[in-house]
């Protein structure tokens, strides 16, 4: 009983920590409403579909990019043949970014939302920045 104030203080800290996400979301303005993750992809003449269907690409693109990188850098295997007889160059800059040139809306929206920091751009040049001459 003598220790009741201390115990209540401890419990208060516990409850506040347990409810931290609730409090944080209540304080921040954009919480609760999922961000607009609409992805605008530039239409390039002659190219309609992505290398693999978008549904799969959403969860597997990092695996594919990793595989491509290893193939190209370590095996000098530069071309990807899909089931429909199409051939793509295994290149982030030349294949992926050819259509998805809008990195800030295409790549970054989800990555920012998920707090993912891909190290693609440690080496690769970001297209707009190249055109703007900022690099």
């Amino acid at each position: 009983m003598r220790d009741m104030p201390k115990i209540l203080l401890g419990l208060l800290i516990f409850v506040l920590l347990a409810l931290f996400p609730v409090i944080y979301n209540a304080v921040t303005a954009d919480a609760g409403t999922p961000p607009d993750l609409v992805i605008e992809t530039q239409n390039v003449p002659g190219k309609s579909d992505c290398v693999i269907p978008g549904e799969e690409m959403r969860t597997k693109h990092m695996d594919m990019l990793m595989e491509w990188r290893n193939d190209v850098v370590r095996l000098d295997d530069r071309y990807y043949h899909d089931d429909h007889g199409r051939t793509f160059e295994k290149s982030l800059t030349n294949t992926c970014l050819d259509c998805h040139s809008n990195k800030d809306t295409f790549c970054d929206r989800c990555h920012t939302y998920m707090e993912v920091d891909p190290y693609c751009w440690d080496c690769h040049v970001i297209p707009q920045e190249l055109e703007g001459g900022t690099r």
Binding site: V22, Y24, D63
Partner: peptide
């Protein structure tokens, strides 16, 4: 076995802001 991580976060943020949603997939 990758899941749609953006959907997962939408669900969890929804829970913790009392605005629950269950995204498909």
């Amino acid at each position: 076995w990758k899941v749609d991580i953006v959907g997962v976060k939408e669900l969890a943020v929804g829970l913790f802001s009392f605005n629950p949603v269950v995204p498909a997939g």
